[in-house]
Nucleic acid binder design. Structure first.
Lengths: 212, 212
DNA sequence: TCGGTTTCTGCAACCTGTTCTAATCCGCGA
DNA sequence: TCGCGGATTAGAACAGGTTGCAGAAACCGA
């Protein structure tokens, strides 16, 4: 049970070790399938086969296919936060650091384009039941953006619930995340290239930060 | 035939009158169902029944369910453009006009919340085959944003292919559309209220335009 | 170790988007 | 008017997400 993916991140994991292992096998199988075939490539019957569980068991761990992929991308966002804490963007000004932050995030995500398309579709189609996942992702990104704005190192250990940044910093983070997400959706829809995503981020950052 | 929805907007409609009427009945049925039950409420078997055509016929007019809803929202965007040309936002400064533009657009869309959720999901999940639709929507919004920035009246009749605005104006339009779209997706996912959408637009517009 | 509870399995079933096919219908040019 | 070709229809069929269920397995406290 354990309301899907919110589990490992928010609630105390009431899962036994064997269940944690099962969860991992499921998620790994889903990721592998997504890397090959994107959203449609993740056929739950295949996920079940590849992870050695019954089809119905998937629904004990996740509410839906989307929820499963949301869990995967949420893990990735935690990983990204760690990386950014270890090797923060080291540009001179806030703009350069932000550009680098999003360039690295974009590269990291789209390095596995089919997986990226899969999770983007999952995010876009998810409903309120997965809102917690989304919120977690958002809070991590905000933390990274604020850190990049200030030229600091993002806090990895602080609980996600802890508020961060000034009003203005949070607004900038919000705008940039919206532009990023929406651009990525556009890329996933075939509207433009990955390069266009990075370029839009750069233009947006300049528009927001550079004196006019 | 007629590659789905691009038809009525881009290519010369090679459809006979009876076919145009059929198309209209299909779209109207889909809209009605979406208004009631959102994306999932649009069951193609029901659309076919309600519009009096066979299930297979739907696929002669639209590539997919998403494509169908994209067509509907595209009609709405044309309508919005006309309304904005008739009664443009009449604030003093560019900021006020933009805030009003997006407030009105948001209200118009979310007045039928289930329909809005349906088309948002369709947009987010669409693939390259519907890129033309998306582009059309985007071009219309850009036209409205640029007009609001300048305090002019958007051009309704000019072909959508005609480029518009300065580099900076287009960037602002792009950022605002990304924020708008992404906020709406967040609303559709249950992440926040409609009010939050309008508020984010206001904050973003201030961030972009007001001197600091 | 035992009994009860929870989880997992294997499988069938359901639902809905999508595709396919054969038969029919319709408009239109000859 | 006739006949042809494209459009439409009814219906079946397929695919994959989701659900339900009965029995087997695993776990856990006593």
């Amino acid at each position: 049970m354990a309301s899907s993916s919110s589990t490992a991140e928010f609630a105390a994991p009431r899962l036994a070790l064997s269940q944690l292992r099962r969860l991992r096998r499921i998620v790994d199988a889903a990721i592998a399938l997504a890397e090959t075939g994107g959203f449609d490539g993740v056929r739950l019957r295949d996920v079940a086969d590849a992870s050695g569980v019954a089809l119905g068991t998937l629904y004990k761990y996740f509410r839906s296919k989307e929820d499963m992929l949301l869990f995967a991308i949420n893990e990735d966002s935690a990983q990204l936060l760690r990386v950014m804490a270890e090797r923060p963007p080291r540009g001179e000004g806030a703009s350069e650091r932000l550009v680098e932050l999003f360039a690295r995030a974009t590269r990291g995500l789209t390095r596995r384009p089919n997986f990226a398309r899969a999770v983007l579709r999952a995010i876009a189609a998810s409903d309120a039941s997965s809102a917690v996942q989304q919120a977690a992702f958002h809070l991590r990104m905000t933390r990274m953006v604020v850190a990049a704005l200030r030229g600091e190192v993002p806090d990895v250990v602080a609980p996600l619930s802890e508020p961060i940044g000034s009003e203005r910093e949070r607004r900038i983070a919000l705008v940039l995340q919206h532009v990023w997400f929406s651009s990525l959706i556009g890329w996933a829809s075939g509207l433009h290239s990955i390069g266009a995503v990075t370029q839009r981020m750069q233009e947006s950052i300049e528009l927001l930060l550079e004196p006019r």
